[in-house]
Design a protein around this nucleic acid. Structure first.
Lengths: 348, 348
DNA sequence: AGGATTTGTGTAAGCGTTTTCATATGCTAC
DNA sequence: GTAGCATATGAAAACGCTTACACAAATCCT
């Protein structure tokens, strides 16, 4: 009914280091050495042991191993409740590098929610280290993270004297370029920012860049130039509808805090016959694949997602292997990507 | 420099079940029982032990526990190299349910690639069970999966006598509805299918539904009505350009095997002044968020992503807890979602 | 009231590894 | 030829936990 091997070894895991040792006619210590420190074993014995391992399809028990070594080669990843392309891109990047370096990913998007379900928190004690991604300034105990008994890396939040390794994106550079681009054709009093709620780290930083650029032009942003709610298509749409109703969506430039908002605005404008970029110029943020899928193609600011993922993995592994090294703080650049939606108005 | 607690307990893990036992004045067996079988311990001792656990911030060592119980409450998830919304939605659904049931997710998109990197294969022996998602008919050893020493659930592939639990999507129902919808306004000889390469399970099934519907109308699909390459925007675009060059993209209906292809086609058509749905009617597949972001809004076929994720988790946990129960085979329905891109041609 | 059961707790035997220490073997060097 | 050393292997002690078994005390029955 079952397979030959299966019944031969009895049940799962029945083939232990002991079986291998017996079959190869050596002690279990030697088997262990063949696996971990081959240079300490003579060629001939090693070959014999390896043969036995293969014959028996032996795989070391990771629990036993972990019990001794306190290592699992598993990295915990805690993500905020974000959806969309960004999530999958980041996961791929993380997984990619982790795989290369012989690690695995234990993922949770719920980990940060306070004690959800019976699996209290994370399988914290199984992982060698933790990558935590933050998007909100509040509600997270950054102090707590740095005092975890595990090595940790934080993505998305940084602060001068933080005792934890961090990786952040430099929203400022890309955003500034984007806004300066808009300001080259529109006066600062006719530029608008549409973002997520106050407290969202990225949205706030993008807004700061926006305000700074306007001020540099000698214009103090009016409160009506700034709208905040959430990172969604619907919010962009709604905002745009409101503007149109007041007859104010023409001959202006909008810097949206992400691509979805930007597309919401663009769609509303389009449906009401407002030309992009003829009368309304728009720049999004994230440079997601959406940008090239919509018409006109959306100008945006590129997030270095792959780089973030790779850096995070490398950072956490460094922390795991050299826990006493000083935590580093990486800052990855964003870059403005010009497409059609922010073209020079009369170029059409 | 460090925290009080930290130095008190020495290093990580220094607080073991033994420390708790001593502090509470009981044996380690009792501590273990308080944690695992509280009903076997008197109220008063239990309280005392729990107090000690709290004071010491004791957390059981999962490796030691796993060594005995052979359980980690971790589920392995192996995903194919898919990008986009689908991935993140599925992950959320999986995580969501897993969390609720006290399990964690060990994820890899590389696991299926043959022995990539030093972390050979999966951290297979740490997980209690495996969820494997398949998209290609070839290159995967389904026999191998079913004979893994671990419980397993396969998403995306099914076959009559398979000895492994499966969860598949019924591409046929939704696809048929979609095509019948197209056929209500277009003759079968003017309907086209644009999909991914042969061998992709979903694309093939969708194509089958397409052909079946056409045959039912008494029309044997011509080879030029079927185009296959990949699930991408660019492929859709390219196909459409080719059709336009031959002057054949008008007064027809297209069933695309996913939303991206559909949008590629729609964009190409739009740029060349072909009206949708006036002259070209399109239906996509997946019902991703893209559908509502593009203009005209894209008709599509909804994949029950959340349901798949939830079902997969429930299935694998059932297999873990009752390994001898007969493997079930779930088939989840898809549903046609009508939007603008497939509207009645003259309704505009 | 005395044996039978139930209840609460401790003792100790593993679980499958890694790793220290001791031992044995074969060399090199005097 | 024997002291000295590198090399190859084995014995055994952890690692932190669960659980079968043993035992004492408290509870129950007739």
């Amino acid at each position: 009914m079952k397979r030959q091997e299966a019944s031969e070894n009895g049940r799962t895991g029945a083939v232990s280091i002991r079986s291998v040792a017996e079959r190869a006619g050596v002690s279990i210590a030697t088997v262990s050495r063949v696996l971990n420190t081959p240079q300490k074993v003579s060629q001939s014995t090693a070959d014999r042991v390896r043969k036995a391992i293969e014959d028996l399809e032996y795989r070391p028990n990771l629990f036993a191993k972990g019990l001794l070594t306190k290592r699992s080669r598993v990295i915990g990843v805690s993500l905020p409740d974000i959806h969309g392309e960004f999530y999958s891109e980041l996961m791929f990047a993380l997984d990619d590098r982790a795989c290369e370096l012989g690690y695995h990913l234990l993922v949770s998007s719920n980990a940060h929610r306070v004690e959800r379900g019976p699996g209290n928190g994370f399988a914290l004690d199984l992982v060698d280290g933790l990558i935590v991604m933050l998007t909100e300034r509040s509600g997270v105990d950054i102090e707590g993270i740095s005092q975890l008994s595990h090595p940790a890396v934080v993505i998305g939040f940084d602060e001068p004297g933080l005792e934890v390794e961090t990786i952040v994106v430099d929203n400022e550079t890309g955003a500034r370029k984007a806004i300066e681009h808009l300001l080259s054709e529109n006066t600062p009093d006719r530029c608008y920012f549409v973002g997520a709620h106050r407290g969202n780290i990225d949205s706030d930083e993008r807004l700061n860049a926006f305000c700074a650029a306007l001020r540099k032009k000698g214009h103090e942003p009016r409160s009506d130039q700034i709208a905040r709610r959430e990172f969604s298509f619907d919010w962009g749409w709604e905002w745009a509808e409101g503007m149109i109703d007041e007859g104010r969506l023409e001959d202006i430039a909008v810097f949206a805090a992400n691509d979805e908002i930007a597309i919401g605005i663009a769609n509303a404008a389009r449906d009401r016959g407002i030309e992009i970029p003829g009368s309304l110029r728009i720049v999004g943020f994230d440079d997601s694949r959406l940008c090239s899928l919509v018409r006109p193609k959306l100008s945006s600011v590129r997030m270095p997602v792959r780089e973030i993922g790779h850096a995070a993995i490398e950072a956490i592994i460094r922390r795991i292997e050299e826990p006493d090294s000083a935590p580093r703080h990486a800052r990855l650049a964003t870059t403005f990507v010009e497409r059609e939606s922010s073209g020079v108005p009369w170029s059409m």
